[in-house]
Design a protein around this nucleic acid. Structure first.
Length: 372
DNA sequence: TAAACGTGGGA
DNA sequence: TTCCCAAGTTT
């Protein structure tokens, strides 16, 4: 009935083919309910959908999996997460990147835990939550609440630009792409449709070397007919990445504790822990390490590390010194050796500490991080 | 509108 | 090695 009427349009054909493909070829993911489960009356848990969507923002599925499992084990529902300390959330998020997501995650949990109905089910209401933008609001509405929302992420943009041969550069093509996707969304299974588009983009309609021979909608794809699908979507060329330098100081107390401090909540690596460093904008001419070290000591050059952020590349000279039993300077604290692996250390800081003390950031059996 | 914001894996 | 860029949001 409704299915037949939908299939009478070209758009309906695309959605139907895509859903049939999804039924047979969907990826199995820790946060996903299989179409079979949903057909049997299963419901996606909004908490898990939300948590996974936040983690997946600009982040690969493989990187997210272990973090998703760890979060779910520590905090099985939104009230548990709301009861947690922000610091613990930052520690659990360490290494995943884009740390404002962790802060917003906690802020969002605090809000939702206070709502009688839990997560709202409409895009408009979801969109008001911290860390939830246009994409995430639509994804949660569609996947967790079966609303016919138009879900547009990077995969969907690529698939759609190829399907409709949209050659407008991506930045200016957003509205056009959104309108095209909106015309495809089936009233029947909007959540599965959204996930089908994303799975197609991730496994078939890939950025490079798309597997068009395996594509369920290749007969509907205009990019195949009149060009090279791999050339779409058209992206603006990216600006050259500035290179910055600095120095980092690993101070080691007699008992093996390391001197740390916490970065401001806003900005790069906001709210995360670090060893003392110089500023990262200055181009170091010669050795200025002793001037900007946290205290005077016999600082030894322990090597250097390189790390690439989204908008600049960083090289840090790493200095190491024994600190005896010195008290921590203002704004700093000593982190016991056994607790280093559980600290909210971003990857760049783990590299620094490893350069000074190999193995220091690896989890040990007696480390609290393993018992938490 | 554009820049800021992390990290890791694939080619 | 180097480049690309992934289930984006915020300011």
């Amino acid at each position: 009935m409704t299915r037949k009427s939908v299939q009478q349009t070209e758009e309906g054909n695309i959605a139907s083919r895509l859903l049939a493909w999804y039924d047979a070829n969907h990826r199995e993911l820790p946060w996903r309910r299989a179409p079979r489960d949903l057909a049997a009356g299963g419901r996606a848990d909004p908490y898990r959908v939300w948590l996974s969507e936040i983690m997946l923002q600009q982040t690969t599925v493989e990187a997210v999996k272990p973090y998703f499992r760890a979060f779910l084990e520590k905090w099985p529902n939104v009230k548990a997460l709301a009861a947690a300390e922000t610091e613990e959330v930052m520690k659990a998020w360490a290494g995943l990147g884009y740390y404002s997501r962790a802060r917003n995650l906690k802020a969002c949990a605090d809000i939702v835990a206070g709502l009688p109905e839990g997560f709202p089910g409409t895009e408009d209401e979801l969109r008001k939550l911290p860390g939830v933008g246009a994409y995430t609001a639509a994804a949660i509405a569609a996947i967790a609440f079966n609303r016919p929302a138009t879900v547009v992420d990077g995969n969907v943009e690529r698939v759609t630009a190829r399907l409709f041969e949209i050659r407008t550069p991506l930045a200016e093509a957003k509205a056009e792409i959104r309108a095209a996707v909106e015309g495809l969304v089936p009233a029947d299974r909007p959540g599965d449709f959204a996930q089908a588009m994303m799975d197609l983009g991730a496994t078939i309609c890939t950025p490079r070397r798309p597997r068009c021979m395996l594509c369920p909608v290749r007969e509907d794809c205009r990019a195949i007919l009149s060009g090279d699908p791999e050339l779409l979507p058209v992206r603006a060329e990216k600006a050259e990445k500035p290179r910055r330098r600095g120095a980092a100081f690993v101070a080691i107390r007699n008992d093996g504790a390391i001197l740390l401090r916490t970065r401001p909540d806003k900005g790069l690596l906001g709210g995360m822990s670090e060893v003392p460093t110089t500023g990262w904008t200055a181009r170091l001419d010669g050795d200025t390490s002793s001037e900007s070290a946290p205290f005077t000591a016999d600082w030894q050059h322990a090597g250097s590390i390189a790390h690439v952020f989204t908008h600049f590349a960083l090289e840090l000279d790493v200095y190491r010194a024994s600190a005896g039993d010195k008290a921590a300077p203002a704004g700093h604290r000593w982190s016991p050796a056994a607790e280093i692996s559980g600290e909210a250390l971003p990857t760049v800081m783990k590299k620094v500490i490893e350069a000074a003390i190999p193995g220091a950031t690896k989890a040990r059996r007696d480390s609290p991080a393993r018992h938490a």
